[in-house]
Simulated scan of single mutants.
Amino acid sequence: MTHKMVRLGASLVSCVVLLHGCSSQPSGRYQQAHDSAPTRIPTATELQSATPVQEPLSRQGNQDYQVNGVFYDVMERAEGYSETGIASWYGNKFHGHLTSNGEYYDMYSMTAAHTRLPLPTYVRVTNLNNQRQVIVRVNDRGPFHSDRLIDLSFAAAYKLDIVGHGTAPVKVEAIEFLSPAVEHRYYVQLFASEDAQKISTLRDQLPKNWQAHATTQSNESLHKLLLGPLPQVEANKWLQQVRAKGFPNAFRVKITANSAEATDSNNQN
């Protein structure tokens, strides 16, 4: 989630006074316009790493999406994920509000936000400045800054000694469970319209190599032009290609056992 990270002073007590003094009036669905630090430090129990548990994917929060004109393609699996980047944290402003997978954000729980990892995913986060580690459960989307990799809860950031600095370089590694992998297949949706003739004409105008993969689907009054079905890796390649060549709003559609489930709710008219 988009927010401005605060920099704290030498001690948490003094920084809390400073931050509350700088808080703006409430705006939108949040009680304050800018983020701020909690009024207390985490307890010893709250500083314990999250215990990894193999969970099914959340019913929401796992669709491809767009924020501020940027497309985010949600990873199908977290196995093998390892990346270094900058971690930030979020606190009071978002405490008690819904996360992307429909849970309530608790800044004293060991959780985190990531733009692309499946929800939920357990990851090990290492502060590369001091080698401190913590395991957190990713249950939210963000941070939507090009120079940041992960947003940590206040408790996780406190354990890694990131709170006082606001950000830190980290390594993020997915906790893996031994389970059989399921390879899903996808469509790449190019366009949707209530005008069936428009879809047919547009299909005929596609490049020859695209037409070999093109298909149409109709759902009540909505007609769709798609490419596929395709394995995930190939679908990702086609997605980047079609976005660059005239279909900037194209997105993937995961094929489920019963139907094709769109992984983005945006339709073009």
Results as ranks from 00 to 15, higher is better:
His34Tyr: 13
Asp35Arg: 01
Asp35Leu: 01
Asp35Ser: 04
Ser36Tyr: 05
Ser36Gly: 12
Ala37His: 00
Thr39Val: 10
Arg40Trp: 00
Arg40Lys: 10
Arg40Val: 07
Arg40Leu: 01
Ile41His: 00
Ala44Arg: 10
Ala44Cys: 00
Thr45Asn: 10
Thr45Ser: 11
Glu46Asp: 05
Leu47Asp: 03
Leu47Glu: 04
Ser49Gly: 07
Ser49Met: 03
Ala50Gln: 05
Ala50Ser: 13
Thr51Lys: 14
Pro52Asn: 03
Pro52His: 03
Pro52Trp: 02
Gln54Val: 00
Gln54Pro: 00
Gln54Cys: 08
Gln54Trp: 08
Glu55Thr: 11
Pro56Asn: 13
Pro56Gln: 13
Leu57Gly: 06
Leu57Met: 13
Ser58Trp: 04
Ser58Phe: 03
Gly61Tyr: 09
Gly61Asp: 11
Gly61His: 09
Asn62Tyr: 05
Asp64Thr: 02
Gln66Tyr: 02
Val67Glu: 14
Val67His: 11
Asn68Asp: 15
Asn68Gln: 15
Asn68Ile: 04
Val70Pro: 02
Val70Ile: 15
Phe71Trp: 15
Tyr72Ala: 12
Tyr72Trp: 12
Asp73Tyr: 06
Asp73Ser: 14
Arg77Val: 10
Arg77Asp: 15
Ala78Lys: 11
Glu79Ala: 14
Tyr81Arg: 01
Tyr81Gly: 05
Tyr81Thr: 02
Tyr81Asp: 06
Ser82Asn: 09
Ser82Leu: 04
Glu83Thr: 03
Glu83Lys: 14
Glu83Cys: 01
Glu83Ile: 01
Thr84Gly: 10
Thr84Pro: 00
Gly85Ala: 07
Ile86Asp: 02
Ile86Met: 14
Ile86Asn: 08
Ala87Asn: 07
Ala87Arg: 04
Ala87Asp: 03
Ser88Gly: 05
Trp89Thr: 06
Trp89Ala: 09
Trp89Met: 10
Asn92Gln: 15
Lys93Val: 04
Phe94Asn: 06
His95Lys: 04
Gly96Met: 09
His97Asp: 09
His97Val: 01
Leu98His: 13
Ser100Glu: 08
Ser100Met: 06
Ser100Tyr: 08
Ser100Arg: 04
Ser100Asn: 07
Ser100Cys: 07
Gly102Phe: 09
Glu103Val: 00
Tyr104Asn: 10
Tyr104Met: 04
Tyr104Ala: 05
Tyr105Arg: 01
Tyr105Leu: 04
Tyr105Lys: 01
Tyr105Pro: 00
Tyr105Asp: 03
Asp106Tyr: 12
Met107Cys: 08
Met107Pro: 06
Met107Trp: 09
Met107Ser: 06
Met107His: 08
Tyr108Glu: 01
Tyr108Trp: 08
Ser109Ile: 00
Met110Gly: 07
Met110Asp: 02
Thr111His: 11
Thr111Met: 08
Thr111Tyr: 12
Thr111Ser: 15
Ala113Met: 10
Ala113Tyr: 09
His114Glu: 01
His114Phe: 02
Thr115Cys: 14
Thr115Trp: 00
Thr115Leu: 12
Thr115Phe: 00
Arg116Phe: 03
Arg116Met: 09
Leu117Trp: 09
Leu117Cys: 06
Leu117Met: 07
Leu119Ala: 07
Leu119Gly: 03
Pro120His: 11
Thr121Ile: 02
Thr121Gln: 02
Tyr122Ser: 02
